[in-house]
Design a protein around this nucleic acid. Structure first.
Lengths: 259, 259
DNA sequence: CGGAATTTTGAACGCCCTCAATCCACGTGG
DNA sequence: CCACGTGGATTGAGGGCGTTCAAAATTCCG
């Protein structure tokens, strides 16, 4: 039995502690939890920023995360051009990143980190938009650098996180160069399936949190092409799609299509 | 007056010091300079790994670079699957990176760093092939991490280098999504022009070190399309191409075409 | 329950790819 | 010095895949 892919327990039991920010923008500001979360008891500890720290030192990592924050569906964690001060570790929910020119550059789920592209310029190069109600841990970057100088395992893990983002994008570039729409859509579904499985969800049945337009933008094709490809896969008995709900009947078939 | 874009002086005056590696592979091994290069007197100091270090501490950075190495045209600095131990700072010449599936993922010139994608997995995810006779500084990664824990400016600069690579690829992905072949080729030429200008070369006239096939793979189009686009630009009086030699008559025109 | 947003499906078009022939630059050897 | 070979570049013709435009169906959400 797999757990349902929805807003995690952790965030919900803390909702009563939320304090609303007084200086709000014209845009409705998200609720902000001012209580420091506990990495040591976090369910995501194994796949998150602190994945490298052993039990002995995990206590010292609590300083890494200043607080956490709720982001409701459609709201932005950060926008293009915002000053960069923090990384964001996604605690629950899912998020897309979008460039200035409306190009979707990535989809993120629990345990993954947002904002790595902003380090070099000092401002975010893309906007991070919640695809469903989500919770993020706020990691002040200055603190991260300080701790990285003190804890070698954290430093090494952080370097791997950065490098991994480079790899992810390199793979995406290769995918978008010289492949058909069918291959891209198949690879997209396989990728989602893998990442959900690693988090304890079913790899064969899940809910797409993004629109066809988002998927198309991410894959470099039009939304109609995504829809048509889904339909073709369904006619071939490989998948079942009903709106955002999707079932993968033939994972191996999809994998062979993605090459 | 711009200097000619060719093998730099620095490497040539050191050629007499080259010692050939005794344990060579079946592949002819490149010459290896065993003498530690001097960052403090390097012409590339401003754009390279040690760009962040002030005069007071530059002496301590010499330990960062263990030695340098010649790589002749067509030779590999590293290959896919090779164990990752070092980063490579390109000292002179130019290099392309190629994935397993023959996809060209990047072109590099003097001062730029190769191998950042290998940190996360411990092996290189692409091959680095010299497009002309080139020289690279070898930077053992363990040393880099140690020095990053000791020198905050170096740590910050290194993080920016990693982040910058993320940005570069994100821009490339955006370029390859929803743009015409014409826009891609124009953007490619503008990018090359900018990077050459920053290095003191002419932004309006230079030599393409890579083939049309390389360019096409990098941009996600076929080599014939690259050739045709060059020809069209020439007919419109925007550029002049003769083989690998290229002149950009109308930089502003190209820039407006790339959007 | 109602209206907007999203998705699906159809038909025609166009950009880029494929296949193929020719041309050109360059290095090699006769 | 030129003939020759080879890899790269150019150009043409035709076809296919994804786009564009459009309309209908469905889903989602307040």
């Amino acid at each position: 039995m797999y757990q349902e892919a929805e807003l995690g327990e952790l965030t919900r039991q803390s909702v009563r502690h939320i304090t609303l920010d007084a200086q709000t923008n014209d845009v409705p500001e998200s609720a902000v939890g001012r209580f420091v979360p506990h990495c040591s008891s976090c369910q995501l500890r194994n796949c998150c920023v602190a994945a490298c720290i052993d039990d002995e030192h995990i206590g010292q990592m609590e300083h890494l995360v200043s607080h956490w924050r709720m982001v409701y569906r459609g709201e932005a964690i950060f926008r293009v051009g915002d000053g960069f001060h923090s990384l964001y570790a996604l605690r629950s929910g899912s998020v897309k990143t979008v460039t200035d020119e409306e190009h979707v550059s990535g989809f993120f789920m629990a345990g993954e980190t947002l904002g790595l592209g902003a380090i070099s310029t000092g401002e975010y190069d893309c906007a991070a938009i919640a695809l469903e109600d989500s919770a993020v841990c706020v990691i002040p970057f200055a603190t991260m650098e300080t701790l990285c100088r003190q804890f070698k395992p954290l430093q090494q893990h952080f370097h791997k996180m950065l490098s991994n983002e480079i790899l992810r994008e390199a793979r995406q570039m290769a995918l978008m160069s010289g492949t058909t729409a069918e291959q891209r859509v198949a690879a997209f579904l396989i990728d989602l399936s893998n990442r959900l499985q690693r988090r304890g969800y079913s790899p064969r049945e899940f809910t797409l949190r993004m629109t066809r337009d988002d998927i198309g933008s991410y894959l470099g094709v039009k939304l109609e092409t995504v829809s048509r490809t889904f339909s073709r896969f369904r006619q071939e008995g490989i998948i079942r799609v009903k709106g955002k709900h999707i079932e993968l009947f033939d994972l191996d078939g999809l994998k062979s299509l993605s090459n």
